[in-house]
Structures are given as structure tokens and as C-alpha cells.
Amino acid sequence: MQSYNLLLNKILIIIVILIGGLFTHIAIADPSHAKANASKSHLARELIGGKLVLQIETVSGTDISDVPNKGVVVQHYIDKNKLTYSGVGDERFLTGAANYSVKDVSHNKVKEVSVDHATGQKSQTTYHFSDPTQGEWKRRFDNSDTIISGHFSFTHKTSLLLEPLVPKVQGGKTLVLTVLHSTSKVLPTGTYPAAGAVILQFYLADGTYTAKGYGPGTVDHFGSYKTTMVAPKVQVEQTLQTIPELNYIAPYTLIYHYETAFSGTWYQSFADGLIVFSGTFSSFDSE
């Protein structure tokens, strides 16, 4: 009987080993399982040395008077623990540095927790990648109900060394802006450029421009401009616009995302968010 029990125990041990090996083989051989885990860790690693440009599109909260509501936040990831930040397009932007940590949420989403070096302010930001170079972001702050969100673009550290698609000089260029979307929480529909409208903007080397509109709700205008390249494919334009027909002067912040050296997409906050536009553009030399 004792020999029989020993034999039975050996058989059971062999069965357990075989079953365990089978499940291990299945887990390793499952390509979707391996790919998901690899891509999750890949997102966090790829941030190091790279640059995120966070386009501000919506801001909500009880007290947001000191919070930028247009332009972009530029974050440069120095190493696995530290990032620096700055902003372009709103006078309320600050410049500084923060410690950060990144946690994977899914195969295309990461959550970042940062603590500002100067103020100690803690924030949590979620980045949802639609592809390796762009996506949507949302930021919340501890002890505050302020939420900022929008779209972002990411430039890998190796791409930062490449020749920029953004032109070195805007003067001498003509840009053709096609409106695909426009919205206003204040103005009635039909009183501002709508989808299908086209605006031709002619830039001079002296920092001035003129523009002519075609289509629903467009008006001719002119003004002064300043452009800033914040990434090899991203440019921010700040303009003080005069509309003679309406006897109206207002600033706007426009963000160009270059997909080629002469075309891409644009997003504009006019008159501090009075009207928001987006669409596509093409450019060519006008001089």
C-alpha cells in the first residue's frame, strides 16, 4: 500500500508540473499579451529626452482667472524624474521645473503625477495616445477643481535633432487657412467664419500681415504678428488683429501643426476664446 501511495504522489506531481508548464507556454506564446505589456512600458520610456506640446482647448473650475486658457504648454523630459515646462500664447504662463512619475493605465494611456519645484503644487495628467506622436490630455490639480484639457503632440528625442518643418521665417509667406470647424459660446451662428470659409494671410518681413476672407462670415483684416517655434513641427502665432469693417481690434493665438513643410492643421483662439477655429492650411512663398 505504501508503494502504491508513493507511486500515486509521483503521478500527481508530474501532472501538476505538466499543467503548469502548459499554462506558462500559453502565456508566453500569446502575442497579444506580450505586445500589450511591451507597448505599455514603451510609452513611459519614450518620454525621456522628448518634448510634449500640450494645446490648451478647455479650462474649467471655480476660480480660473490666473489659469492660461489658450496657447500651449511645452514640457521637456530631462530624465526619468525631472521635467521643465514653459508656455507660449498666454501672458499667464509660468516657467519652471517639476519632479514627475509616470504610470501605465493601458496600452495607449499613461498617468503622470508631477510636483512643482517652486510651489509644491501637485497635478495629475492623463495622456491618451491616438498614435505614437499625438493624442488627448487632461490635467487636474490637488486642492483645486481646475481642469485643463486639449490635444497634444509628442516629439521623440531623436526627432528633436532633425530639420524642423516649421519655417525659420514667416515673412514672405502666404498661408491659406481653410475653416473646418468654428464655434462660439457668445456670438450667434452666421456672424463669424463657418466651415468652408477660406482666409488668405500674407506675411511681411516687418512683422505685419494682411488677410482676405472668402466664404460665410469672413472679413478682411490686418495687424502685427509674432511667431514662435515650440517644436520641430509646431509653431505658435500671436497676432493683434484689426478689422476695419467692424472697427474692432482683438488678439488671437493660432497654433500650426506642420505635417509637411507646406501644409498641416491649425487651431485658433480668437479674442481670448470668443471664437474657436480649427482646420487645415497650406503655405507658399509670396515674395
Rank of each mutant, 00 (worst) to 15 (best):
T189Q: 13
T158W: 02
D272R: 10
P232W: 12
D66R: 09
K212P: 03
T227D: 12
T239L: 03
L43K: 04
Q268L: 03
G196D: 05
A38W: 11
T239P: 00
Q124K: 08
L204C: 09
Y77C: 12
E136W: 05
T158L: 05
L254D: 11
D116V: 07
P216R: 01
F284P: 00
P132C: 04
S130D: 13
W266L: 02
T265L: 04
Q238N: 12
F23T: 15
L22H: 02
Q55T: 08
V102Q: 13
H76C: 09
G71N: 06
G213I: 01
L43Q: 11
H76I: 14
H42K: 15
K40W: 07
Q2D: 00
V110H: 04
L52H: 13
V179H: 04
L8W: 01
F129Y: 09
L200S: 04
I56C: 06
G61V: 12
T95V: 12
N9S: 14
Y267N: 10
G49P: 06
V53W: 00
V230M: 05
E163K: 12
V102T: 14
P167E: 08
Y252V: 03
P193W: 02
S123V: 06
T178V: 03
Q201A: 07
Y203G: 06
A38D: 14
K168H: 09
H181Y: 09
P167C: 07
G96V: 01
V102W: 09
Q170C: 04
K103I: 14
Q241L: 09
